[in-house]
Every structure is written in structure tokens, then in C-alpha cells.
Amino acid sequence: MSWFIEYYDDSALMIKVKETLFESKGIQHIQIFETAGFGKMLVLDGKIQLTERDESFYHEMLVHVPLFMVDEPKKILVIGGGDGGTVREVLKHNPDEVVMVEIDDTVINACRKYIGIDGGALEDERVTVLIEDGMEYVENCKERFDVVIVDGTDPNPVSESLVKEDFFNNCKRISNIFATQAQSPFIQKEYFIEIYKSIKKAFENYRIYINFVPTYPLGLWSYMIASKNEIEPDYDKIKQRWLERKISTKHYNPDLHVASFALPEWLKKEVKGD
């Protein structure tokens, strides 16, 4: 047994590791561990991306919040998400087409072999997987999507373009609704504010929502949803769609959907002037 430690500022998270299943250094430093209490765990450049035990907390809120705010989400674009969890959740809405753009095919191959949380989603005939840079894809894209979802890593040389205003402007051009993970507003304030300010410049309408993911930095995680149209969670509509689509989840439900938009006072102050 050994310990994996993820450091952030003056704190850290320790998880007991039973075995290293995979490690590769290329575009990113990829590690996959078998842990003692959280199942298999994916780490990119020293940052935990998922554990089997709580990945649903993250993927379900990233996907179902924007998709349940659409009458019929038929065409979805996912930027990043090489582990397959986001596409898995998108397919529960029975779309006609899903495009996933991932820059690092080693992540896809390693996750399918050693973790498998996609449950075969990446092999679904409705899914097209493209190995290319997400920023370049949206710059050159001539199609439109009902929803665009960004499932990216912490901002680093590989993913930093995905938190810039130009990227969000291009996503606005090709989508009706846009959603992205937005880091921890508590322990990663600089990352969160950078994403928030860029989205604020690109979109007329935007909202922050939050959720608890135990193995992410100190547990609190944020997301942002944006659109040309007003964004106002309607509980009755969301509940009706939830019942009609008969989607099975481990974490998400309509009550949590609406509650996630209620922000604590300290976070409201962080974005005061919005």
C-alpha cells in the first residue's frame, strides 16, 4: 500500500493506493490507480479527475442540468471527457448524435481498458469521437448543437484555451445552451474567476451552479451554464422531463437541480456586480 496525495495551496487530499494500473507521460501525465476505498482513480498531471466511487456526483450534474433544460436535446457536443462518463450520461437522453472532441487519445484508450465507466458509450453508433484540439474544432465548426458541454481538466498548457473568451464566443456561435465545469470557487478562486469573467463577456445570460464532489479540491465544485436566452430553472418542467425520459441516476434529481443554483453569500460576493 502507498498513498496518493493531491496538493492545493496549503492543504491536500490523501487516498490510499493498492496498485498502479497504468502510467504514461505524453501530452499529459496519466495515472490510473486501484485505491483502497474509492475504486479505480484517474489522475492527470497530478490532479484527480475521477474515482469510481463518486464520479457520478460530477458527471451527472455536468450533463443533466443543461440537458433537462432543453425540450428535445438531439445533437450534443462534448469537449474533453476522455473517460467517457459525460457521453454515458448524455446518451441517457436518447439524442440522435453526440460528438466528443478529446485531444489525448491515450486517456480514452487507458480509461476504456482500466476503468470502463463509459459502459460502452464511446462505442455507441450515435457517438463520433474526434482526436483533436477542442479550441480548433469549435473555431472551424459549421454545425449547430442543442447543447455544448465542456468536461475539461484544471487549466494547464493542454486545456488553458478552453477557459478563454474566444473559446466561449465560438461555443456561443454553435450552441443553444453551453455548460462547463468551473473548478472550486473556494480553493481555486483564480481559476474560477477566470472562467466566470470570460463567460460573462461572451454570453448575454449565464448562471453558476454548485455541487459536492468528495474527491475534488475540498469537496465543493462549480459549473456554469450559459445561453443567448434566459436561464431560469423551472422545477415543474424539469420534473416532467425527468419523469418522461425515465433516466436512472445515482446522484442527480430535479430537487438537486434547482437547489444547485442557490449560492452561499460568500460566493455571491465573489461575483458581485454581475
Rank of each mutant, 00 (worst) to 15 (best):
N170S: 13
V213K: 02
P214N: 08
E34R: 14
I15F: 06
T20D: 05
G80N: 01
E265H: 10
V70L: 10
K268P: 00
P73W: 11
K25Q: 08
R245G: 01
T128Y: 00
K47W: 08
D151C: 07
E165I: 12
V98K: 07
K18D: 15
K239S: 13
G37V: 03
K92M: 03
N253Q: 01
Q240H: 11
P66A: 08
Q188G: 01
G134N: 08
N229T: 14
V87P: 00
E132T: 12
Y196T: 09
Q49Y: 03
K40S: 11
I27R: 15
H251D: 04
C141D: 06
M61L: 11
D54V: 06
I32M: 07
Y8I: 14
V147M: 05
E232I: 14
N169W: 07
K172E: 12
K197G: 06
E19I: 02
D154H: 03
H93R: 02
G120C: 10
K92N: 03
F261S: 00
F203C: 10
D255L: 06
D124M: 04
M1G: 12
F212E: 00
D118K: 06
R207E: 15
E34C: 02
D9C: 03
I5G: 00
F145N: 07
R53E: 14
N253M: 02
H29P: 02
F57M: 12
I247P: 03
K74S: 09
N205R: 13
K268N: 09
P185A: 11
S260A: 11
K113Y: 06
I117P: 00
S24T: 12
E55K: 08
V129A: 03
R53S: 14
Y58Q: 04
E34D: 14
I210W: 07
K201N: 15
D96W: 00
E132A: 13
E230G: 05
I32P: 08
S11G: 06
Q49M: 14
E125F: 05
